[in-house]
Design a protein around this nucleic acid. Structure first.
Lengths: 109, 109
DNA sequence: CAGTATCCTCAAAGATACTG
DNA sequence: CAGTATCTTTGAGGATACTG
């Protein structure tokens, strides 16, 4: 019988925790977009074709709360806000890259 | 202005396609479990503590339909069924591994 | 531009009971 | 054991209109 050891337990936790973050709709795409540099709200709105402002806002705030994304606001007129990945957030990129790799071969096979 | 070129377009598609698969609840965990070898329905039910049989069944069938998991049924009594990753499914493992890595440091920081 | 405020829908997933 | 059948719920996310 396979016993449930602590190592396996924490491994599952780690995978589950990450899944909760990356699993939310649009998040992987968003992180991928931000990997190319700082982006404005409207730019993200366009690259994630179909996302509603409500959802985009919510997703960005969640990433901000988790300190994966930094919101930079400039006091200009018209207002300019830019979002960028933090170092912590950039740690997600190897996952995105593997997802891209998998997705590509999944779609082309 | 950043133009939307075909390369970026297909890249987004690839990430999105993968996100759709791996983003479903329990799926990442399931694939992770199956990476350790063939597993029976009841084993998966236990390692994914909290999953309902309805959901587990649905998730396995989806993975089967995508040819990421193979269902092997043995004509015994009591009936025995085992699920295992296909080669195509094993291609998801680098993602899971990166997720585990990220999740671990995310949780311990 | 960068969001918020509201309202609404629908599908994902849980709970539970049952069966070949 | 390995599921299916039902029923129900919740909340994620869409649509739209509005604002500092």
């Amino acid at each position: 019988m396979r016993t449930m050891n602590p190592v396996h337990e924490s491994t599952s936790c780690a995978v589950a925790a990450c899944a909760e973050i990356i699993g939310a709709k649009w998040t992987a795409l968003l992180v991928h977009d931000l990997s190319e540099g700082p982006r404005r709200f409207s730019e993200l709105e366009h690259s994630c074709a179909g996302i509603s402002p409500r959802t985009l806002s919510e997703r960005l705030r969640a990433l901000e709360d988790e300190e994966l994304v930094l919101r930079r606001s400039y006091a200009e007129s018209p207002p300019r806000v830019e979002y960028e990945l933090t170092e912590k957030g950039a740690a997600l990129l190897p996952i995105i890259e593997e997802m891209r790799r998998f997705g590509h071969s999944f779609l082309t096979d």
